[in-house]
Computed example of a mutant assay.
Amino acid sequence: MKRKEAREKAVQTLFQLDNTEMTIEDAIPYITDTDRPIDPFYESLVKGTTEHRDEIDATLAEKLENWSLDRLPKIERTVLRLAVYELLHHEDVPHRVVLNEAIELCKQFGDEKSGRFVNGVLSKFEEK
């Protein structure tokens, strides 16, 4: 699985997990092919974003202007959480790649406004 596909599947899984009682172990089979081993990058994105959600949400809350996380549309919130996880915990992925992938995910699962909004929020994160 390429990283782009891993991110797409991670967004779908995280979207499914948002505001439900479902566990990661329950959600993953809905999104992935259970006949093949789970892709390590995909798994790290899902588990890492879930495990670090409080830290990610606190970081996001500092960057949001005139918005709260609860008011964000679910797809934007999900893509932002995934992207912030990557920015904070996957230093091997360039900042620009995370931004571009997040915008593409918004275009795929949301709309053009979603991409612009997510770009605006993520542009407040400094490159490392």
Results as ranks from 00 to 15, higher is better:
residue 93 V to T: 10
residue 73 P to M: 11
residue 19 N to V: 00
residue 85 Y to D: 08
residue 38 I to L: 11
residue 35 D to R: 07
residue 47 K to V: 15
residue 37 P to L: 13
residue 23 T to R: 09
residue 104 E to H: 11
residue 61 A to V: 01
residue 69 L to F: 06
residue 102 A to E: 02
residue 67 W to Q: 09
residue 16 Q to G: 07
residue 12 Q to R: 14
residue 29 P to M: 13
residue 12 Q to I: 09
residue 46 V to F: 05
residue 61 A to K: 03
residue 10 A to Q: 03
residue 21 E to Y: 11
residue 32 T to N: 05
residue 31 I to V: 13
residue 76 E to Y: 01
residue 29 P to R: 14
residue 24 I to L: 14
residue 93 V to A: 00
residue 62 E to T: 01
residue 99 L to A: 03
residue 26 D to W: 02
residue 35 D to N: 11
residue 66 N to R: 15
residue 108 Q to C: 00
residue 62 E to W: 00
residue 82 L to F: 13
residue 96 R to Q: 14
residue 31 I to D: 06
residue 30 Y to K: 15
residue 74 K to P: 02
residue 27 A to W: 07
residue 99 L to S: 12
residue 69 L to K: 01
residue 41 F to W: 04
residue 25 E to A: 14
residue 17 L to E: 07
residue 21 E to G: 08
residue 55 E to I: 14
residue 60 L to V: 02
residue 10 A to S: 07
residue 67 W to K: 11
residue 72 L to Q: 03
residue 65 E to N: 07
residue 59 T to S: 10
residue 53 R to D: 10
residue 29 P to N: 12
residue 18 D to M: 12
residue 49 T to V: 07
residue 20 T to K: 06
residue 68 S to E: 08
residue 71 R to V: 10
residue 49 T to R: 06
residue 41 F to I: 03
residue 12 Q to D: 10
residue 20 T to S: 13
residue 46 V to W: 03
residue 70 D to E: 14
residue 71 R to M: 10
residue 61 A to M: 01
residue 39 D to C: 08
residue 94 P to I: 05
residue 14 L to T: 14
residue 35 D to W: 06
residue 82 L to E: 14
residue 17 L to M: 10
residue 30 Y to S: 09
residue 69 L to V: 11
residue 65 E to R: 08
residue 86 E to W: 09
residue 28 I to H: 07
residue 78 T to L: 12
residue 86 E to Q: 15
residue 93 V to E: 12
residue 12 Q to H: 02
residue 83 A to R: 06
residue 93 V to Q: 11
residue 39 D to M: 06
residue 63 K to C: 00
residue 80 L to H: 05
residue 24 I to V: 15
residue 66 N to P: 04
residue 87 L to W: 04
residue 49 T to Q: 11
residue 42 Y to K: 00
residue 13 T to M: 04
residue 8 E to L: 09
residue 67 W to H: 12
residue 9 K to M: 11
residue 48 G to L: 04
residue 85 Y to Q: 09
residue 97 V to I: 13
residue 9 K to D: 08
residue 17 L to Y: 10
residue 48 G to R: 10
residue 34 T to A: 10
residue 105 L to M: 12
residue 85 Y to M: 06
residue 36 R to L: 15
residue 71 R to F: 01
residue 91 E to P: 00
residue 65 E to D: 11
residue 72 L to D: 10
residue 81 R to K: 13
residue 17 L to A: 08
residue 68 S to Y: 08
residue 97 V to C: 07
residue 44 S to L: 04
residue 26 D to R: 13
residue 86 E to V: 08
residue 34 T to W: 02
residue 46 V to E: 03
residue 57 D to L: 11
residue 13 T to Q: 04
residue 88 L to N: 00
residue 86 E to K: 07
residue 58 A to R: 11
residue 15 F to H: 13
residue 10 A to L: 03
residue 36 R to H: 04
residue 91 E to G: 01
residue 105 L to G: 05
residue 57 D to S: 07
residue 85 Y to H: 14
residue 91 E to Y: 02
residue 11 V to F: 05
residue 53 R to V: 09
residue 27 A to H: 12
residue 72 L to C: 07
residue 17 L to C: 09
residue 74 K to I: 15
residue 27 A to N: 12
